[in-house]
Design a protein around this nucleic acid. Structure first.
Lengths: 332, 332
DNA sequence: CTGAAAGCGCTAACAT
DNA sequence: ATGTTAGCGCTTTCAG
């Protein structure tokens, strides 16, 4: 059978409590006793049962991570940031994919709570009313990473998407463009429909450039979507000479679409993307891209969560990380 | 306080045992009783405590997943395959990154066992002797996904890397090349150093083409590594006219390196990659690539693990999945 | 079909 | 500094 704390206690001629103390690094143990216990632990290859510990202490040192899809670069980067900080604070991660499906998100929340996680980090492109309520009703701390919720009540970590998008569009305007397209993923995702799009429209209007709905294209945000989007855009009477793109993969699709149609980037069409993943450098010309620090967002979100879990004071429950634009060759 | 099984029992005028039975779908409960209990559960918003359940039943319905780095496309795809099947069988995943560091792998194994996972899926590019022993000594089932171990004792899921590589190289030979390079990630990784490289050498020799060590290049397998590798290769007195590449990212680096030097793919240099991630289509020309079905490897590994966890009969503990070569435009 | 009771392995007062 | 003793919330015989 597996060796328990009781076995160690017996072998070391001490009580379970003492073994528990040395295992948990409690200082109230005579060095000699500690040494003796440690030796028995080693000899018996005792490994504390975290489940029993969790039941007794009501802490599992596990945190739940709910993301749309780990096979997506964007989420993977975020997850890595979360995991690194979690490891640093000795937490383990229970990871699950929601596929951006509200029902799954809700079920997952429930499952994780059932597993008694000490906290949750969640990423959701679309925080619905129902989800919002579930999050607020959550008995353990929860922080949203790279997700926009409508209320101020929920902890979250983001960049200022509006401002970032504004700067990108302004850059294009400054380069003399008046036919600027906006190509992004689903507009029902608030980051796209509420932030980037709003910034796009506002910035254009401020520059007295009329909004042309034909230049606003939303698809699934994939590479193929980018390819296809250019096909449509290029057939316009008056095609765009610059494009503000929602993510890198989409941007690469657009670049290739443009090149396939015999035009050049940035000479004929300038492009500014939004993400700056490693993909941004893996295309010719390399993409100018708004830096979305996903790893950092994940890391900071997890760090924030540890504070909540330790019941530390948190001065700002809505963290906004700095952003910048990485200038490369898809824009001038 | 949180509501427990005892609260439900009291409210429903039954014993804890009965509540436990309905929660666990035990058929030995009168429909009327079940209904009553279910109502109370709903009313009280009772949520079973998985930790307590785990302690009592010695099953946690959690499986550990140890991979080198989730932010790497390759691992993320694998992880998604694992997670999907895990979800299907109602397991949760405890995910951790090893950074391909033996010490971390060992610690992680220990942590997961401490958390009483029911099984483990692991990916490791380099299964060392020590790791091998730890795996064999593991008290719960464990299956290696996309990893090569030296013994037959460990369950694993792979493709036939040697044969796949052989076919790729043969394809290049069939196209008339005699100056064929092999560019890959670290050779201490068995997949590279023992399988692909061996296949490369054997196939060349079988075709009476002398091995030129200058054409064998190993780096870190990154995009930049690919760029740099071509710089070196192109400075050779007699540069290669075809390259068999270890992975897609590396291959894209090579393609760009070749194009930057004024040559063309596949006219001047043919390329066959190994991975066929979605990246393979995101470059011009698109990559001909050996299909490494990472999602499937993960899924099958997890499925295999469920069999072990259920103590089902397993006919083949070393699964080899089929592979094929996706023909695109980087080769003729 | 249902209940009583004994743990699962550990932590956390409370004693000493 | 160390031991004693309740539980933590649930599953699982064993009776009935």
């Amino acid at each position: 059978m597996t060796v328990t704390i009781y076995d160690v206690a017996r072998e070391a001629n001490v009580s379970m409590a003492t073994v528990s103390r040395v295992v948990n690094g409690n200082q109230n143990v005579k060095p000699a006793t500690r040494k003796k216990v440690l030796e028995v632990i080693e000899r018996l290859e005792y490994r504390p049962n975290a489940v029993a510990r969790g039941l007794a202490s009501k802490k599992t040192t596990s945190v739940g991570v709910i993301i749309p899809d780990i096979s997506n670069n964007l989420n993977a980067e975020l997850a890595r940031g979360i995991e690194d900080i979690a490891t640093m604070y000795r937490y383990n991660i229970i990871l699950a994919n929601s596929d951006q499906n509200e029902e799954k998100e809700l079920t997952l929340l429930d499952t994780m709570l059932g597993k008694q996680v000490d906290g949750i980090v969640m990423m959701s492109e679309e925080v619905t009313e129902t989800l919002q309520r579930a999050v607020e009703a959550c008995p353990v701390p929860i922080v949203l990473a790279g997700s926009i919720s409508s209320t101020e009540k929920v902890a979250s970590v983001n960049i200022d998407y509006y401002k970032a998008a504004l700067e990108a569009v302004q850059m294009l305007i400054d380069n003399g463009h008046t036919r600027i397209a906006f190509v992004s993923g689903p507009l029902q995702y608030k980051v796209n429909g509420e932030r980037k799009l709003a910034a796009y429209k506002d910035t254009l209007q401020k520059a007295n450039i009329a909004i042309d709905e034909a230049l606003i294209v939303a698809g699934d945000g994939s590479y193929d979507d980018g390819l296809e989007s250019w096909t449509n855009l290029s057939e316009l009477e008056n095609p765009p000479t610059a494009i503000f793109v929602g993510n890198d993969e989409l941007a690469i699709g657009l670049v290739h679409g443009i090149q396939d149609s015999g035009k050049m980037v940035p000479e004929d069409v300038e492009i500014i993307s939004f993400e700056n993943s490693k993909l941004a450098r893996m295309v010719r010309p390399q993409l100018t891209s708004v830096v979305l620090p996903l790893y950092d967002i994940g890391a900071v979100a997890m760090r924030l969560l540890t504070k909540y879990m330790n019941k530390e004071e948190v001065d700002d429950q809505r963290v906004i990380l700095p952003h910048r634009i990485e200038q490369r060759n898809s824009s001038k």
